[in-house]
Every structure is written in C-alpha cells, then in structure tokens.
C-alpha cells in the first residue's frame, strides 16, 4: 500500500509532471513565473486548491455521480469553484497571514486546467480518497517544482542580452521545451529497479 502511494506521488510529481508532460496549467506557468518567490507562492496555492479538488471529486464520484454520470463535468466545475471560494473566506477570517500569502492567486486558479485535469484523471484512474489526496499532493508538488525552476531560469535571462526577436513568449516556450526534455529523463526512474 505504502509503495503504491509513493509510486503515485513520484509519478505525478516528476514522471508525468502536470505542466511539462500533460501541458496543464500553462497560463500560470507562463504568467507568474518571473520571480521565484511569487512562483513558489503560486505553487503552494495550487497544492491547496488541488487537495480541495481531490476531496470534492472523490466525494461527488462516490456519492452523487453514480446516479447521473452525464453531470460529471458541470458538477466538478461548480462544486470545486464554490468550495474554493468558501475555504478562501474561511481562511481570510481565521488566518490573515496565510490569506495574504495565497489569497490573490486563489481566484485565478479555481478553474484552471490543472485543477479540472486532476479531478478527471483521478476519476479515470479510479482512485480512492487517500490515493486521490496523494495524487493531488504529487501533482501540486510537480507544478511548484516546474514553476520554481522556470522562474529561476527567467530571473537569470533578465540579466542577459537577448535578441529582440526571441524575447517574450517564444523564449519562454523554448525554455519550457528544454525543461520538458530534461524531465523526460525521469521516465526511466522506476523501470530499472
């Protein structure tokens, strides 16, 4: 059981990294990856929302959607968005410091594709509650890792002289491509042992 969970975690984090392998959550990946500190906070906000999503998706799948499978997509979106909003209000009241650190990112990511992707993938794989939560942690960790590495590289590129023709999105995409290639190396991680 424990090895299974570890495998789910590692696989979601580096081998099938959400950003670099599945292309999910690219908007924040390119949008807020210009400083390491912001990128890290964005990553943590993602972990937070992913955990809530995993729980909601498991709950809906186990108790509601058996009777109406065609409502899956609609109910995922609405339930996740409103739960996140609710938890956001609770945090604002209970821990203003945490809210200041994560708050501004929460509305941005409630319906981003990484979040919905996690709900759909976890459903398709038939994960239970614990597995879903571990999967969410791994996926969130992977998103944070990719964001922070990207931000680190982009901080460095600001100090360099870059030809005007490649500046902006083109450069970011090519950096992401090289990063994605590097992450492909993890694919052989478990097959050898």
């Amino acid at each position: 059981m424990a090895t299974d969970l570890l495998w789910i975690f590692i696989s979601a984090m580096v081998i099938n990294n959400f950003t670099l392998y599945y292309f999910l959550g690219l908007c924040p990946f390119f949008g807020v990856s210009d400083r390491i500190s912001t990128a890290f906070r964005m990553g943590m906000a993602n972990v937070f929302v992913l955990l809530i999503t995993a729980f909601c998706a498991w709950f809906l799948n186990s108790f509601v959607l058996n009777h109406a499978p065609y409502l899956r997509l609609i109910s995922f979106i609405i339930v996740v968005a409103s739960t996140v909003q609710f938890v956001e209000m609770a945090i604002k009241k209970l821990s203003p410091a945490l809210f200041r650190a994560l708050g501004i990112f929460l509305p941005l990511i409630t319906t981003n594709c990484a979040i919905l992707g996690l709900a759909l993938f976890a459903t398709n794989k038939g994960y239970g509650l614990v597995e879903s939560l571990v999967y969410a942690l791994g996926a969130g960790g992977g998103l944070t890792l990719a964001l922070v590495i990207m931000a680190g590289i982009r901080e460095e590129t600001k100090l360099l002289e870059i030809p005007k023709v490649i500046e902006g999105t083109a450069l970011n995409l090519i950096i992401a491509g090289i990063l994605s290639m590097a992450f492909m190396g993890f694919a052989g991680l478990f097959s050898t042992t």
Binding site: L20, Y21, F23, L171, L173, A176, G177, S180, M181, M184
Partner: peptide, 12 residues
Amino acid sequence: PPGGFLSLGFLL
C-alpha cells in the same frame, strides 16, 4: 511533450 513547446516556440 517537449516537441509541443519547441514547435510553438519556434513558430512564434
């Protein structure tokens, strides 16, 4: 996957 990033990057 890397090909996706690279080809869009080079197209842009």
